[in-house]
Design a protein around this nucleic acid. Structure first.
Lengths: 161, 161
DNA sequence: CACTAGGGTTAGGGTTTA
DNA sequence: TTAAACCCTAACCCTAGT
C-alpha cells in the first residue's frame, strides 16, 4: 500500500497559513510554487493544501480552543445501519466565510500600504492584518532566515491554542 | 443509558472476510454496496467494517490475552509528494505480489490486496477459497446455524462456476 | 488536460461498554 | 482489567465544474 498517512507537522501547517496569508486561499498551486513555501510543503499536493486549510477553518471555529460541550450527547439504540460516516452538518461554512473575508480582504503582497480598514467592526480583523504585515516585515529582513519561524510566528499570534 | 453493543455474528464476520477477499481491505463502502454482502452486513456501517477488521487483525496475530502488541508503529515519511492525478500502478505486477502475499499471509487480516477475481479465474481462486474456509473455521462454533452452509453460500456468490 | 470546491470515505487514536 | 465495539476527525479520495 502506498501512503501510510501523513500527519501535518507544525512547520507545514505554519507554511500553509503563511502561504494563504500571502496569496489568499484557493491559490494552492501558487502557494506550492512559491519558493518561500515550496521546500516546507514539498511533500504536499495542492489538494492536500486545500484539505488542510478546510480542516484548519473548521477547528478554528471555536470547537478546538474551547471544546468541552461534548459529553452532552446521548446515544440511542441504533435501529437501522448508520448510513454514512456522519452526514452531519459539520460543514463549517460560516467559518470559511469568515476566514475568507479576513484573508482575501487584502492579500498580503498587495497590502504593504496602510490597510484600508474601512470599517471592520470586528477588531480581530484589524489585529490579524497588522500581525501579518509585521511578520512579513520581519521575514524580509534577515535574508534566508527561517521561513518556518516566520510562519510559526504568524500562526502563534493568530491561531493560538 | 448506553448504546447497546451489537456483537458481530459469525455470518457477518464471514461476509466481511469474504468481502475483503474480493475487494481488498480498505474498500469498506465498496464491500457494503456489493450485493453479495449487503444483505448480511445490512446492520453495519463502513466504519463498523473497518473497526471489525482491525479487531480481527489483532486477534489473528495470535497474541494471548496477556500480550499486547500495541502501537509500536512509527510514522514513515513519504518521499515524494503525491501528484494531483496520481497514476495508479495497475499493471498486474502488483497483482502477482498480492497473490504471493495472500498465499503466505497467515494472519489472514494482515495484508490483502484486491484481486480481480472476476477477470482471472485461475488457481489462485482455489487458494483463496481455502483461506476463507480456514479463517471461517476460526470464527466460532456453537451457534445453531450451519456455518458450513454460510461459508458455502458466500463462496458460491463470489466464485460461481 | 490542470486546478479547485466540496461531498464522501478511510485510518487510526481515543472512548465506552460488557 | 481487558477486549470488542463504538466514536472523533484529520487526512485522503472522487468527481463535477471551470
Amino acid at each position: 500500500m502506498g501512503a501510510p498517512k501523513q500527519r501535518w507537522t507544525p512547520e507545514e501547517e505554519a507554511a500553509l497559513k503563511a502561504g494563504v496569508a500571502k496569496h489568499g486561499p484557493g491559490k494552492w498551486r501558487t502557494i506550492l510554487r512559491d519558493s518561500d513555501f515550496s521546500e516546507l510543503l514539498r511533500l504536499r499536493s495542492n489538494v492536500d493544501l486545500k484539505d488542510k486549510w478546510r480542516n484548519l477553518s473548521v477547528t478554528a471555529g471555536g470547537y478546538g480552543s474551547r471544546e468541552k460541550a461534548r459529553m452532552a450527547l446521548k446515544k440511542g439504540r441504533r435501529v437501522v445501519p448508520k448510513l454514512t460516516a456522519e452526514p452531519m452538518d459539520v460543514d463549517g461554512k460560516d467559518m470559511d466565510i469568515a476566514h475568507d473575508a479576513i484573508i482575501e480582504a487584502e492579500p498580503l503582497a498587495m497590502a504593504l500600504e496602510p490597510l484600508a480598514i474601512e470599517e471592520s467592526p470586528d477588531k480581530s480583523v484589524a489585529r490579524l492584518d497588522d500581525l501579518i504585515l509585521e511578520s512579513y516585515r520581519k521575514a524580509n529582513e534577515p535574508s534566508g532566515s527561517n521561513k518556518a519561524a516566520v510562519a510559526a510566528y504568524i500562526e502563534d499570534q493568530i491561531w493560538p491554542l
